[in-house]
Design a protein around this nucleic acid. Structure first.
Lengths: 131, 131
DNA sequence: CTTGACCCTCCAGTGACTGGAACCCTTATG
DNA sequence: CATAAGGGTTCCAGTCACTGGAGGGTCAAG
């Protein structure tokens, strides 16, 4: 498989696949003409990476996951721990967004949104918390 | 006020304040010795920026908000529109995180997390969606 | 033989900072 | 007066995970 084939198969952009090689997540072979060629195993790894990334795992997480994936002896608790830590991080971010959403929705609600210049959104952003 | 004073007053790191000057969000004056000195207006703007940033507005959003904030003639609907667009973006991100959380929680739930190597999390990441 | 679709590398940029080096200014103390 | 601590300054590089573009080689079809 050439790079565009594996790109089509995995949904990952060509640029991204080259980048993943550069940072040693994958090591595809090379043809005589210098083109990368991808084995089934490479394709699987890339698909794996794509899914892990879309679940929000960082590249470093992915490296760990890939290592665990390739290590047939590892305990499932290792993977579980990584996923659990990641889940907590996701929930933290989600809580933050919830907080932001509530605050902002409240402000928008209070704002008339008409031709007059007085706007509670700006008023709140400008409010001096010191005094 | 020197930079560390305004940093303490606003909670923004010194480095961030210098960065905000570099990208022309603020234009503090300079003393004879080359030190920046910050007026009350600068301090207000920085506090405004800090709050807008913590609500997740991008630097570009902040630039718009500051312009609107300084423009006494603008209609509140302009601000409202910006905030509304931003709110939708926040909700989109939150939905994504919710989706990720549910998927991951489901996988973690299915994983025994013991010494055995079989792990549904990795199995799912590795699953070939093509076939 | 030419065209167009591939492929390659290398360099630079993104957003919003952050860290560090190297240096200057101010104030207090021995 | 020397010095040391604790401000301040600039500039350069790095972060993360790509993304865009220039400039050029390769391949298959017409």
């Amino acid at each position: 498989m050439n790079i565009s084939d594996v790109s089509a198969a995995t949904g990952l952009p060509v640029k991204t696949i080259r980048y993943y090689e550069e940072i040693d997540l994958i090591t595809p072979g090379r043809s005589d003409n210098g083109y990368r060629h991808f084995s089934e195993s490479d394709r699987h790894k890339l698909a794996f990476l794509g899914r892990a990334r879309s679940l929000g795992f960082s590249i470093d997480d992915c490296r760990s996951l890939l290592r665990l994936y390739n290590d047939t002896d590892r305990a499932s608790s290792d993977v579980r721990q990584l996923a659990l830590t990641h889940l907590q991080e996701i929930e933290r971010k989600r809580d933050e967004l919830t907080q932001m959403r509530d605050t902002l929705a409240h402000l928008i609600d209070a704002c008339a949104g008409n031709d007059r210049p007085d706007c509670p959104i700006l008023a709140d952003l400008a409010a001096d918390r010191q005094s």
